[in-house]
Design a protein around this nucleic acid. Structure first.
Lengths: 209, 209
DNA sequence: TTATTAAATGAACGTTTGTTTAATTAATAA
DNA sequence: TTATTAATTAAACAAACGTTCATTTAATAA
């Protein structure tokens, strides 16, 4: 079949995606050449075309599999009846999931515009499906009067922006660990939903710098 | 001097920046060629080099002038002593300023990595200076015990992400006008700071969709 | 008018781009 | 072993890239 077979080994296609993800995140889709990707996986540029039709299809595979994996993962989460608990769980899930996939998240944001119309719509649909999960939690909390929210769609986008924003500054080994960050954001998200945690409302932990 | 002189007219360099801003925002820095920019201002590619040393210097000019204009504008705002009022003013300023400059904002986020180290640092310094304005407001509110904030730096980033996120979905002519959006975000930001507006805490305006 | 100068053209530069193709390699199936 | 097939290489393709340059154009200054 192939050149080298290290027992099982990771599929070449997967290694290509991994390399492309790293390079696209670092330099941007348009700035990365097929030869750069090939070099990263010790291949010639031409060999990439045994695994992907075009450069575009590599980007498409990255974006769509990222969104599909996100949806699969969140749908595997246990359903939670109480709106406050559901909102807290969503917050923790979003931060944890995104903080460990900075490259994919970055690409999903930045390179959408480089996708052809078809795949672009696919990704957009998946994204809206994800956003609806949060919006429905907010709506449920509004219905039970546990949440005090002025506008559910806007609040949905606000919360997601806030949470995804963690990726722009978080680095492992920094002042705060993931758990601490999760806790801080749970506080803020519940406050945005109009049901702040009573205990922490009064708290005032000061940090330096 | 030049080819055509329409009485005064906008400087060619400014028209180049305008065109580059539009194209970079739409397709990304790396994906836009000097010939595309030139065509947009009815010039040949070579003529651009009478106004800019390199393609890089166009990007640099865009990013730095965007950040400098932002700083100039916010420093021109009146100082507000009360932390809650200052936070509200900051929120309104940030939304208004960014909502009307979607291209520049987008580029400032996405193309930083395409800047050479020198200009990159320049932009980063300006951005941190801007973030410090918000952080200082939060700190002042914590000192007076008006705010209940767990971590000022994290809250600063969370608020800025939340506010800048408006640009990803806002379109003029949509369901909400700028004023309404400002009001909604003021509520959410004050809540994040731990001092929600009492009146609106109990409110529950439902929208459709 | 003439001299000077800034701006623009259009062609060319050497590279690099994504992609294709014929030939070669190595693994599997018969 | 032989035949088949998938994967890879290396070379080539035309097109596009950022940038340079000699030349031309048109405006200003003397």
């Amino acid at each position: 079949m192939a050149r080298k077979t290290g027992s099982v080994g990771i599929e070449t296609a997967e290694r290509v995606l991994k390399a492309a993800s790293m390079l696209f995140a670092r330099h941007g889709y348009a700035a990365v050449s097929m030869r750069q990707i090939a070099k990263e996986v010790n291949l010639q540029a031409g060999a990439l075309y045994n695994h992907f039709e075009t450069k575009q299809s590599i980007l498409r595979a990255l974006l769509i599999s990222h969104m599909e994996a996100l949806m699969e993962e969140i749908e595997a989460q246990p359903e939670i009846a109480d709106p406050r608990d559901a909102l807290e769980a969503f917050t923790r899930f979003h931060i944890r999931y995104h903080i460990d996939r900075p490259e994919e998240v970055f690409i999903a944001y930045m390179e959408l515009r480089n996708l052809e119309p078809g795949p672009y719509r696919e990704v957009t649909v998946l994204r809206q499906k994800y956003e609806r999960i949060l919006r429905d939690i907010l709506r449920r909390g509004m219905a039970t009067r546990e949440f005090a929210i002025v506008d559910a769609p806007v609040t949905t986008m606000a919360i997601i922006s806030m949470l995804t924003g963690v990726n722009t500054w978080f680095r492992y080994g920094g002042r705060l660990g993931v758990d601490e960050i999760e806790n801080i954001y749970v506080n803020m998200v519940l406050a945005v939903a109009g049901t702040p945690k009573p205990v922490l409302r009064a708290t005032q932990n000061e940090e330096l710098a």
